[in-house]
């Protein structure tokens, strides 16, 4: 469902104002030679310290950013070339910022999504009713998005990303800043979605609770390369001496960089 083969993404960083620049522009490799496959129906956690290349990967998977090298296929499409077609087959949630219309009531956002994604009216109504019930959106459908609490907004974002029943759901830190109750609700929803509908889920997070409770498979990216790919148990096994998963991941993060 998601295939990356030798994907690289570099940025040219210009330093300081033009007249003060010394030497040439600096090239930063946000992602280098990244390869992994995610099969349909998998639930994969994508981990990595800040600046490791997680967001760059997400942007390339969704077609926002074109890779500098390598090949990407998501739901059978090249994201950067077939952005608009791909958009109908994937759902994207950014935990830190919303893809809903900030000044419009939640209901209007859902209505717009139906038209933009060309979802059949009756299918949409049924799906919206279902999502409203499971995500408990009923109480704030008529509230403008900017007035929603973070937990409410993230649930609204998840619903909007799923209204067109995508085969793949990509979530960038969906549980960041949520209280324990909201977090549990979001996790439970994602687990059911994956188990019952077979939606492929890829999620980035800093919350290891998400990983332990949700993901059968974990990938860890560091300095733009895949540093680990396996099950949660295999992840633990990399550091038998550590007791908590936090310590295991900390060890992986703080290894000297492979250069």
């Amino acid at each position: 469902m998601i295939e990356l083969d030798g994907v690289g993404r570099s940025f040219t960083v210009r330093q300081g104002p033009r007249w003060r620049r010394r030497g040439g522009p600096r090239v930063v490799h946000a992602v280098r030679d990244l390869s992994f496959h995610v099969a349909a129906g998998e639930f994969v956690g994508y981990l990595g310290p800040n600046g490791a290349g997680k967001s760059t990967t997400i942007k390339m998977l969704t077609g926002i950013l074109a890779p500098t090298s390598g090949r990407i296929q998501v739901a059978g499409l090249d994201p950067s070339r077939r952005r608009a077609v791909l958009a109908r087959r994937i759902g994207v949630v950014f935990g830190q910022r919303t893809t809903l219309w900030w000044d419009l009531p939640l209901r209007d956002s859902f209505h717009l999504v139906r038209h933009l994604y060309k979802v059949d009216r009756t299918v949409h109504a049924a799906r919206l009713a279902e999502l409203c019930e499971v995500l408990e959106l009923g109480g704030f459908l008529d509230t403008p998005v900017r007035q929603l609490s973070l937990g409410q907004r993230v649930r609204g974002d998840i619903a909007a990303a799923l209204l067109h029943d995508p085969a793949v759901l990509v979530l960038d830190e969906p549980t960041i800043g949520l209280d324990v109750v909201s977090k549990a609700a979001v996790r439970e929803f994602l687990r059911t979605l994956n188990a019952e509908r077979g939606t492929t889920v890829l999620l980035t997070t800093h919350d290891l609770g998400d990983i332990e409770r949700l993901c059968r498979r974990v990938m860890l990216i560091d300095h733009g390369r895949l540093a680990f790919d396996g099950t949660v148990d295999e992840l633990r096994a990399t550091a038998p001496g550590e007791t908590s998963i936090e310590d295991v991941v900390t060890r992986l993060y703080t290894r000297p960089s492979p250069s």
């Binding site: 893809t99 933009l116 994604y117």
Partner: peptide, 11 residues
């Protein structure tokens, strides 16, 4: 970052 949100919609 709202421009990214526009890029993930099919429009």
């Amino acid at each position: 970052g709202t421009f990214d949100a526009m890029l993930i919609r099919p429009a």
